[in-house]
Computed example of a mutant assay.
Amino acid sequence: MFFPMIIGGLLGYQLARFPGLLVGALAGVLITQYLRNRLRARLTDLQSAFIEPMFSVMGALCKADGVVTRDEIQVAETFFARFRLSEQQQAMAKAAFNRGKSADFDLDAEVARFLRISNGQHLLLQLFLQVQVSAVAADGVVHPQEHAMLVRVARGLGLPEAQVEQLEAMLRGAHGSGHAGTSRASSGQQLDDAYKVLGVSPSVSDAELKKAYRKLMSENHPDKLAGRGMPESMRELAEEKTREITHAYDIVTEARKQAS
């Protein structure tokens, strides 16, 4: 804010002394405000452009097992608040979700559309996939048909199948691994899922485990969102993912301590 004002003021002062100083400072303020408004508008347009592919693919995935459950609809609606959608954007999202459920919906074309809109930004593609996994796992289960379609979406985005397995493992951890004080999954399943989240095999050394953990945390750090021009409303998703990565690392390190 102050830097453009100072520059504008100094330039104005050189041209017309004190009156120029005031005019230049005012010009600097106006330029700064203009740039801020342009940035806000760009982020709003970016978010709006994401809505249709995001929610239409979600609709297709929720219908993959033959029925869209009330839980899946509620999860879709929670993203309205998480993405801070306006009433107009919410209406757009609902229409897109319903379009995705239709029999003639072209899933591959819509995934390709998102790939173009995102400019292939890896973190954004991962967050897109994270949203889809969250939606279909609303009932705590990812059905085989849903998993197959998630893999298809991942491949369309240029992401490996392991990304789907990692996110499904994260969701199982979030739903049943002690965050809420109860455990629906066995300790063995939790440990297997934790290794999947971290993307390593149980045979890796402690040093390799720590290296993989730090790499994942660096790649998924929420602060990278702003630097890449992504909407701030998606920051919560990145924070959620880093929490699950840390939780998985804690499970593995604790299991290794007990085994030693």
Rank of each mutant, 00 (worst) to 15 (best):
L115S: 15
L21R: 08
V204K: 10
Q121T: 01
A135F: 04
G100I: 11
T69A: 08
E240P: 03
E244A: 08
K210G: 10
L150M: 07
Y34T: 13
N37H: 14
Q88N: 12
L159M: 08
H175P: 02
L198N: 07
A148R: 00
E77F: 09
A49P: 04
Y249V: 03
L30E: 11
V151L: 14
E72I: 00
G9W: 11
M234D: 12
A169M: 01
F2E: 07
L107Y: 08
L61H: 10
A180I: 02
M92D: 11
M230A: 09
A91Q: 15
D206G: 13
Q90W: 06
S186G: 15
D65C: 02
M149T: 01
E146H: 05
Q88C: 03
Q88T: 07
A135K: 02
A81D: 09
A138E: 10
R42H: 14
K94M: 13
E87H: 15
D192C: 02
Y13L: 11
A162M: 09
P4T: 00
R152P: 03
I7L: 15
V136C: 09
A95T: 05
H175Q: 01
A112M: 15
F105H: 08
F2R: 14
S118I: 02
E77I: 07
T78W: 09
V136W: 09
S177M: 04
P4E: 09
A91R: 15
A49D: 12
P222N: 05
T253R: 08
S233C: 08
R256Q: 11
V29L: 15
G140T: 03
C62A: 13
M217P: 07
R256A: 03
G173W: 00
D104M: 13
A112W: 10
R172D: 04
R214T: 07
M170T: 05
F55L: 00
